[in-house]
């Protein structure tokens, strides 16, 4: 039915297309490559369009698109058998993680207790630091802190319990703070306690 098609196209253009920047950013965080991210966005929108009848109007379209994007990414990765990049589900038990998550707040308490140094760090450096996070933390941090999804929405996109979202977000943020703190030290935005 041409009329149905037109209506579908119009509602899709109105609700889904405006999220393309966000889907692209998410795809870029997933894949780490601009070319792959663009392919992911194209596939995501194609699948979303074909499944548009399944989208419930009034629910958050952005998180629905993220879910599709993540599934497309996982399927592609399975196909290419890049096992080296498979999610590190056991990272919670990684003993090295503890040292990476040691409280930066405690470390910077004497010199900069309110974390003013975060304001001096350029966006590119933050982008790089996020890229370095283990995938399971990176995606949760991106969805929460950059794309403003709720814990419940992140849980749906990532297919994990809300409790896991919380713990990954906590650990991801701590690791990120550590990286940014180390960078701030290197750049002289902050000095270690006792250095002055």
């Amino acid at each position: 039915m041409p009329g149905d098609r037109n209506a579908r196209g119009a509602s899709f253009s109105e609700e889904a297309i405006p999220h393309m920047d966000a889907v692209y950013r998410f795809a870029l965080r997933l894949s780490g490559s601009r070319d792959e991210a663009e392919d992911l966005v194209q596939d995501t929108y194609l699948r979303a369009y074909r499944a548009w009848e399944q989208y419930l109007p009034g629910t958050r379209c952005k998180s629905w698109l993220f879910t599709i994007c993540r599934n497309v990414f996982l399927r592609r990765r399975e196909r290419s058998q890049r096992h080296d990049a498979i999610l590190l589900e056991t990272a919670h038990d990684d003993p090295r993680a503890t040292s990476r998550e040691a409280s930066v707040f405690a470390a910077s308490r004497d010199e900069d207790p309110e974390g003013e140094f975060f304001r001096s760090i350029v966006d590119d450096q933050i982008f790089t630091a996020i890229e370095k996070l283990p995938e399971e933390y990176r995606l949760v941090v991106v969805l929460s802190d950059l794309e403003d999804l709720s814990y419940g929405e992140i849980a749906e996109v990532m297919e994990i319990p809300v409790g896991t979202v919380k713990s990954r977000l906590f650990r991801g943020r701590r690791q990120l703070q550590r990286q940014l703190y180390d960078y701030a030290l290197e750049m002289g935005y902050i000095s270690k306690g006792g250095d002055n």
Partner: peptide, 16 residues
């Protein structure tokens, strides 16, 4: 808060 503001600020980069 300063940490979270820095992250939000940094998202402006990626655009399709």
């Amino acid at each position: 808060k300063h940490f979270m503001e820095a992250l939000r600020r940094s998202q402006n980069g990626g655009r399709a």
